[in-house]
């Protein structure tokens, strides 16, 4: 019998397949590590830092760190959850996240993380940036106010749709989402409402028009169960995954 390799996550053994990241192995083993820009179907981006764990004493992104034997991973600690709360707070303060009028409310990953981590306030001074929406496309609305720069739409368009529709432009505070059209309007790109990139937005930036309230507020994904439970229910299983 060949023993499967494993590492320690918060003191418990988590088995992994060679090539898996700490995040992939944890989710496959039914262990939740909070994450935002990580999505099981796409190349890890490692930018939101929500999944930061203490791996052999160092703070590392669990979604990009390869699983290795003889590794100790700490994730569910007060220190790390405090840092995660601060990250969520900064994202809320930086954009215009007005949940009461957002049709993504209840299905929003950022909001659900806030709920699950117990974020009661953005804490910081709100930026209230001026970010006009792009309603040019007949079937898709782009509301930049809520963009958290996770690049999931960029990755989905590139890796699944085989297109170059979205990209991030600018640096630092000026960093923002752009679309691939000379006019800068979504209507002039080759995006389709059926694209993965449209479906994957974790917040309320890329929205299909005319379906916003088909499911009422209060009966939505994260109204039913917290994101920590949902993420495990969604986690790809079995362990065998194709990494080409």
């Amino acid at each position: 019998m060949n023993e499967r390799p494993s590492f320690l996550l918060d003191g418990d053994e988590v088995p992994f397949e060679p090539g898996q990241t700490v995040m992939q192995a944890a989710l496959a083993a039914g262990r939740y590590i909070p994450h935002l820009c990580y999505h099981p179907e796409f190349t890890p981006h490692g930018s939101c830092k929500l999944c930061t764990a203490r791996i052999n004493g160092r703070l590392m992104a669990a979604c990009t760190t390869p699983a290795e034997t003889a590794t100790e991973v700490e994730s569910e600690t007060e220190e790390l959850n405090d840092l995660r709360r601060t990250l969520v707070q900064m994202l809320f303060a930086e954009g215009n996240h007005f949940c009461p009028s957002c049709e993504k409310s209840g299905n929003c990953v950022l909001q659900a993380l806030g709920y699950d981590l117990g974020v009661m306030t953005a804490g910081f001074r709100h930026f209230f940036p001026d970010r006009p929406v792009d309603a040019s496309h007949p079937e898709i609305l782009l509301d930049f106010n809520r963009c958290i720069l996770c690049e999931l739409c960029v990755r989905a368009a590139r890796e699944v749709d085989g297109k170059h529709v979205f990209s991030l432009a600018g640096r630092g505070l000026g960093k923002h989402l752009i679309v691939n059209a000379e006019s800068g309007r979504l209507a002039d790109t080759d995006v389709k409402v059926t694209d993965k990139a449209v479906e994957v937005c974790p917040v309320g930036v890329i929205l299909r028009k005319r379906v916003g309230f088909a499911t009422p507020i209060g009966a939505r994904r994260y109204d039913k169960s917290p994101i920590s439970a949902q993420a495990l229910a969604d986690a790809p299983r079995p362990l065998e995954r194709n990494h080409d």
């Binding site: 809320f92 215009n96 996240h97 007005f98 949940c99 009461p100 009028s101 009661m120 306030t121 953005a122 709100h126 209230f128 940036p129 001026d130 970010r131």
Partner: peptide
């Protein structure tokens, strides 16, 4: 205690901020 979205985030009235 700040009670509700407006007290916590500025809320609807803050939509005029830009």
């Amino acid at each position: 205690v700040a009670m509700g979205a407006c007290a916590v985030t500025g809320g609807l009235p803050a939509q005029r901020n830009h």
